[in-house]
Simulated scan of single mutants.
Amino acid sequence: MDFFRVTGLSFSQTMPMVWRILLVLDRINTNHIPDLSIEDLPLAYRLRSHGSSRFLLFSTSNSPLIL
């Protein structure tokens, strides 16, 4: 929910890939890194428009941040 509050996007404006990333980050936050927050998302991803008010998250690096 923090992602949508911070970005101002609605659920329907995000592509399925965004949901997968958010779910993985939530699971990492719950199980491994409890202090991970939505403010850390720009370290690995950039939000980009994909057509008519739809949005995707694109990786900002070719190397994985979490090993």
Rank of each mutant, 00 (worst) to 15 (best):
S52Y: 05
L41P: 00
D35T: 10
S61H: 11
R27E: 09
I33S: 01
H50V: 13
S37L: 10
I28M: 07
I38Y: 00
I21C: 05
I66L: 15
L23N: 13
S53T: 04
S52M: 07
N31I: 12
M17G: 09
Y45L: 04
S12F: 10
L9R: 02
R5N: 09
T7M: 06
S59D: 01
A44Y: 14
R54L: 13
T30S: 12
R46E: 11
S37R: 15
N31F: 11
V24R: 14
R48A: 15
S37G: 05
I38T: 09
L43T: 09
N31C: 12
N29C: 11
E39Q: 10
H50E: 12
V6A: 07
N62Y: 03
I28W: 10
R54K: 05
M1T: 11
D40Y: 05
T60D: 02
R46H: 08
L43G: 03
D35L: 15
L23P: 00
H32I: 14
L57K: 00
S59F: 13
S12Q: 07
V24G: 04
L9G: 04
R48G: 02
V6T: 11
N31G: 10
Q13E: 09
I38D: 04
L22Y: 01
R5G: 03
G8E: 02
T30F: 12
S59N: 06
L43V: 13
H32P: 00
W19M: 09
T60G: 06
L47V: 12
S37T: 15
P34N: 09
S59T: 12
Q13I: 04
I33G: 02
P42T: 03
T7C: 04
S37W: 03
V24I: 14
S61P: 01
L36C: 03
S52V: 14
F55P: 00
I21H: 08
S12C: 11
F4L: 14
N62L: 06
F58A: 06
H50W: 07
L22W: 01
V18S: 00
S61Q: 08
A44K: 10
L65W: 10
L65F: 10
L47A: 08
W19V: 14
R27A: 13
L67A: 14
D35Q: 14
N62T: 14
M1Y: 05
S63A: 11
I66G: 03
L57S: 00
F11T: 06
N62Q: 10
Q13F: 06
V6I: 12
S12K: 09
G51S: 03
L47W: 02
D26Y: 08
G51R: 01
R20D: 09
S10L: 08
L9Q: 02
P64L: 09
F55Y: 13
H50L: 15
A44D: 06
D35G: 03
P42W: 05
T30E: 14
F3S: 02
